[in-house]
Design a protein around this nucleic acid. Sequence first.
DNA 1: CCGCATTTGTCAAGCCTTTGTCCATGTTAA
DNA 2: TTAACATGGACAAAGGCTTGACAAATGCGG
Lengths: 298, 298
Amino acid sequence: MVAARTGLSRDVLRVWERRYGAVEPIRTSGGQRRYSDAHVERFRLLAAAIGHGRTIGTVAQLGTEELVRLVAEDEAQRSPQRPGGTPSVAGVLDTAMAAIVALDAPALDAQLRRAIALEGVPWFLEMLVPALMHLVGDRWVAGRLSIAHEHLASAAVIAIIRETVRAVPPLPAAPRVVAATPSGEHHAMGAALAAAAASLQGWSIVYLGADVPHADIEAAATATHARAVMLSITYVEDRARIISEIRALRGTMNDAVPLLVGGAGAAGLVAAVGGHQITLCESLAQLRSELAHAGSPR
Amino acid sequence: MVAARTGLSRDVLRVWERRYGAVEPIRTSGGQRRYSDAHVERFRLLAAAIGHGRTIGTVAQLGTEELVRLVAEDEAQRSPQRPGGTPSVAGVLDTAMAAIVALDAPALDAQLRRAIALEGVPWFLEMLVPALMHLVGDRWVAGRLSIAHEHLASAAVIAIIRETVRAVPPLPAAPRVVAATPSGEHHAMGAALAAAAASLQGWSIVYLGADVPHADIEAAATATHARAVMLSITYVEDRARIISEIRALRGTMNDAVPLLVGGAGAAGLVAAVGGHQITLCESLAQLRSELAHAGSPR
DNA sequence: CCGCATTTGTCAAGCCTTTGTCCATGTTAA
DNA sequence: TTAACATGGACAAAGGCTTGACAAATGCGG
């Protein structure tokens, strides 16, 4: 009795066959239908598709594989809330801050790893890390956290980001991108974030870290045939120096390679530097879009 | 019923077509509209554009590509809710299947790692893995994939899941849970999935793998003071044997420790085994809820 | 701020299509 | 023989189609 196994009535089974050719059951010598497991599976899929708002007329003729995909898609969209509980920035922030305050590096590491596993890297990069570092910065300004706390948090975040990048293998024939912070800028976080975002887009990353002289950045870009260079500027101590570093880098680098500059301190700088092939990226989203441009004309 | 898939009312769909020519659906011989995926996508874009403050009159006639750009721009300006674009099961499925068909293990591994990083582990466990294994199973039944393809896929998925579990450190003072497959059941995937789900809930995992005699499961549970035991039954070859294994395990194990049984083949078995402290878990969501119960009264 | 026109979402009425169910009659399996 | 199945036809409920109207929201000139 296939009806019981699919939740459909016998009549429906037969009328789907007669009217839409949805299945072709094997017949006994006497002419009776014998449904195989594949048939039953197909009926289940059809029933599921209808449950998701499709009509039998539109799905009956589809191949079984197409059906699988269709149903998977519908299911993915039906549950816009992610599986598995609370995707709350606030909750993670609280526990992470507690670990930072206690200077408990292993606990912080555990919390962040858990969060990244639950929510995915993009969420981590674009929602959690900015919120967390912002919070830490605020408390530091207010004198409620020492610079040690800030360094502990940065170190943990950067370590996790770097590790994540290494765990995501680049796509075959991936273009390379150099990520660094120019000489005079010691905050590596922005470069690590940019590297991770690029990595998720399929780029192969050449990560140089913080405080890199322009000549070395240029050398790395040339040696690796990089298709783009990303610079992160967080806090500008010596404005003139950074500007001259960027100018020098742009001047010596291959003109075809775009220079993408981002970070909290980048806004004013890029305008001051001027010149072609220098793009200000005000968000990771924009960085992604610029990378998509730079990477596509292979 | 496209309404449900786009969040727009039927009337709106039709009036946009009538008044602005926003789409041109294909008609059945009977004159009814049949919207393609492209149409649905377009409606989604239009809805998104309106959500960002545009009016239908200004966007209805735009080409789909322009719409994409427009919506992307609008979204970039607004603080992005969930960064990173569309979480599409279908896209990953396609590329992953291509790798499986080609028996290209490194490529499959890369694709899956990328997906898990982008979307998070819960999505991977509950949306992608079921859809992928389902698809593989279908093609195998249809004779278009060999058992080697199926093993390649399982091995890659299990390896990634196991690795992920190890990368998520358990919470301090986390209760332990044993994950295994009873003697006679060689498919480890279900146990790995369950282990990963438990791990994300903060449990400390004792993973024994597949085909474990009941005495050994009991010994592991006792030695580690496990707070719960999870069994996965995928495909039952020797029904009587599995039943006796589960009975024996339940009989020798500490009565206070719940036995959680899940997997495609578990449905009938649990009823047949009977007894207290044996719970059938029909989904990972239910498993999570049972675990939350078992873990809370610490 | 007010009156007026335009835009846009919703609703209604009458007719048509799709789809699940039922029936009458004959056939097969145990 | 009896229960289950097959076939083709019939039918009614659900839902779709079109045209037209209406009202809330928005924009504009005064």
